[in-house]
Simulated scan of single mutants.
Amino acid sequence: MTKKVFILLLCLLPFTGLFAGTSGKITGVVKDKENKEALIGVNIQILGLPLGGASDVDGFYFINNVPPGTYTLKATYLGYRPVEIKNVQVTVDHTTEISIEMEPASIEFEETITVVAERPLIQKDATSKRAVIDGSQIADILPVSTVREALAMQAGVVKDEDGQIHIRGGRLGEVAYLIDGTYVRDPFDNSLGGNVDVEAIQEMEVISGTFNAEYGNAMSGIVNIVTKEGSPTYKIKFQYETPMLNESPYHRKDWLLYTDEVKKLPEAEKEKYKDAVRTETGESAYREFRVLDSKFSDLTGLNVLGKFNSSLSGPVPFFSKMHFFVSGTFRNEDSYLPYGFTLERY
């Protein structure tokens, strides 16, 4: 029997760190607003999540394993007016302190008091230099389309000519990357292994010094990415990026010949303004593209060139308590360069 239990524990060990660094914590004290005495047994709930807690004899409460994001807390207690605290921000590996004061009221009085939480200037449990980027900023506000581009905008982070990330001047393999608590590395150079769709990021944390002992195999910094969870309602997003929608003389062969300055020149001088790469017949080797041109259309079914990005989340049909989230990015381009600017430019 002892041997079977030992084998079972060994099987569970690889999963013990799976969720490390993927959630935060909310704590605080609940008191009477008039006499400042602690209230026992107050129910505190996170609206929209099946998470909550209750205050103890000292009025202290805590809620563990809270996914990163912005929430609304609701405190209810018999004989007191309900209190809602909005804009409660939770980040990975840190504790958010929210103290609550409740006003006495009759049982018939059901009006809810709404309070907006304020973020403290000093994070007491922050022992390292860190930057936290919300997923909505990466996907909708920042001018980035990849994780590496978002990292390059942070202080102390540099992207080299090959697109690789260096933190505090360290080498490429000195940065540890975690996605939902799991190390994700390229086995050849210890860089970021695989790609993460920016639409799937709930929060990204960049630690550039004095990181805790829970993180290992890193010298320069830690990049901790937490992906999104499914939403209780259906949400869909579709985005398409392409330079083909705009009219431009650059989309034509020998495009400089069509500019006003070159049109006035003699024919002999116009020769040096033609495209440098020519075919055997003397024509420009550049091929004019239109938005509906794609040599990959037979394989993909997409007859347009550019970048496609979409995401879908919501409840699983017939299982209201189960949610799903899926996202993806597809590049339909004719080159390894952005928008296919090689000999076949468009």
Results as ranks from 00 to 15, higher is better:
Lys4Gly: 15
Leu9Cys: 11
Leu12Glu: 04
Leu12Met: 04
Lys25Phe: 13
Lys25Tyr: 13
Ile26Ala: 14
Leu47Cys: 11
Gly48Cys: 05
Pro50Cys: 05
Gly52Met: 04
Ser55Met: 11
Val57Asp: 14
Tyr61Glu: 03
Tyr61Ser: 02
Ile63Asn: 03
Asn64Lys: 14
Val66Tyr: 04
Tyr71Gly: 09
Lys74Val: 04
Thr76Leu: 03
Tyr77Asp: 05
Asn87Ile: 11
Asn87Cys: 03
Asn87Leu: 02
Ile98Pro: 02
Ser106Gly: 09
Phe109Asp: 10
Glu111Cys: 14
Thr112Tyr: 11
Val116Gly: 13
Pro120Thr: 01
Pro120Val: 00
Asp134Phe: 13
Gly135Ile: 02
Ile138Val: 07
Pro143Met: 01
Pro143Trp: 01
Val144Glu: 00
Ser145Arg: 07
Ala152Met: 02
Gly163Cys: 01
Gln164His: 09
Arg168His: 12
Arg171Ser: 12
Ala176Asn: 07
Tyr177Arg: 07
Leu178Phe: 06
Gly181His: 14
Pro187Ile: 04
Asn195Leu: 11
Glu199Gln: 05
Phe211Ser: 10
Ala213Val: 09
Ala213Tyr: 10
Ile222Val: 00
Val223His: 02
Ser231Thr: 10
Pro232Gly: 11
Thr242Asp: 03
Met244Trp: 12
Met244Gly: 09
Leu245Trp: 06
His251Gly: 12
Arg252Cys: 05
Arg252Val: 09
Lys253Arg: 03
Asp254Cys: 08
Leu256Glu: 05
Leu257Lys: 03
Tyr258Lys: 08
Asp260Phe: 03
Glu269Lys: 05
Lys272Ser: 08
Lys274Cys: 00
Ala276Gly: 12
Arg278Ser: 01
Arg278Pro: 01
Glu283Gly: 06
Glu288Ser: 06
Arg290Phe: 07
Val291Ala: 07
Ser294Asn: 01
Gly301Trp: 02
Asn303Asp: 13
Pro317Glu: 02
Phe318Asp: 07
Lys321Cys: 12
Met322Leu: 14
Met322Arg: 12
His323Glu: 15
Phe325Lys: 03
Phe330Trp: 10
Asn332Lys: 08
Ser335Ala: 01
Pro338Tyr: 01
Gly340Tyr: 00
Phe341Cys: 08
